[in-house]
């Protein structure tokens, strides 16, 4: 019950451009924002296809979801799809997707060797181009290295600018975690962040998830986030196991 209450008290902090720490990825961010800004102004997008790739935790999903949010908030239709869902869905989910002025396809490497999906994405590329709408694709590797079988699809993914997203280094992670905590309405000291970076999985998705848990626990127990508090949290988690 208390944790449910805590959930309702949390500040909203879903992915947006505002809470993305650009670090060395400012060009990719600028490219993506310029696409969204053009759509908001009812202008044709400066790029009809944009490809982002990088290791897990480099911010691909954050950027794609932020772009959808920005376009949606400007009153234009946007669509997000993660290819991790592909094996459990049918390619028909992409039908008419080109009506959206922005379509973001995440984790695209997951459609490699799924011929029906590769063709469906290829067909969507063609329809998006004909509609002059923007397609943003993200994957773990560059288009040629995704293991896609359909060469026609590979070349279409690389038809526009391709950006490699750099994973944040420790100083940047520290900044990102502090910024995220601040957005959630609490402060974490450098000391706490270093403690976390040294002891937990270090990719940003895991780190943000951890921050979420810390936020909920600190709200529920009304305690400040300190190293003893984290230790108590760990103890508690072990106790549950």
């Amino acid at each position: 019950m208390s944790s449910q209450l805590a959930l309702n008290l949390r500040l909203r902090d879903a992915s947006s451009f505002r809470n993305f720490l650009p670090a060395r990825n400012h060009e990719a961010l600028a490219g993506l924002r310029s696409v969204c800004a053009a759509i908001a102004r009812d202008e044709p997008p400066p790029e009809r296809v944009l490809f982002l790739w990088g290791a897990a935790g480099s911010g691909r999903t954050h950027l794609l979801q932020a772009a959808c949010r920005a376009v949606h908030e400007s009153g234009h239709p946007a669509l997000y799809f993660s290819a991790t869902d592909a094996p459990t869905l049918a390619p028909a989910v992409l039908e008419n997707a080109e009506q959206a002025e922005l379509v973001c396809v995440d984790d695209v490497e997951h459609i490699a060797h799924l011929p029906g999906w590769e063709r469906a994405l290829f067909a969507l590329c063609e329809r998006m181009r004909a509609a002059n709408h923007a397609l943003v694709i993200a994957g773990a590797r560059a288009p040629q290295a995704l293991g896609l079988e359909l060469a026609d699809l590979v070349t279409r993914l690389g038809w526009g600018p391709v950006y490699q997203l750099e994973v944040l280094d420790d100083a940047e992670k520290l900044e990102a975690l502090r910024q995220r905590a601040r957005n959630r309405g609490f402060e974490v000291s450098d000391e706490v962040v270093r403690y976390v970076l040294a002891r937990y999985p270090r990719d940003m998705a895991s780190l943000f998830e951890l921050l979420d848990r810390i936020d909920i626990a600190s709200l529920a127990s009304k305690r400040r986030v300190t190293i003893p508090f984290l230790r108590a949290l760990e103890e508690g988690a072990r106790g549950k196991d």
Binding site: R12, S15, T61, Q65, P77, S82, D85
Partner: peptide, 20 residues
């Protein structure tokens, strides 16, 4: 707003946000 809190970001962005 409520659904954005309740669902995963992936679910929300894939299924709910595109609804007009």
């Amino acid at each position: 707003e409520q659904l954005e809190d309740e669902l995963s970001a992936q679910q929300f962005n894939t299924w709910i946000r595109p609804l007009h």
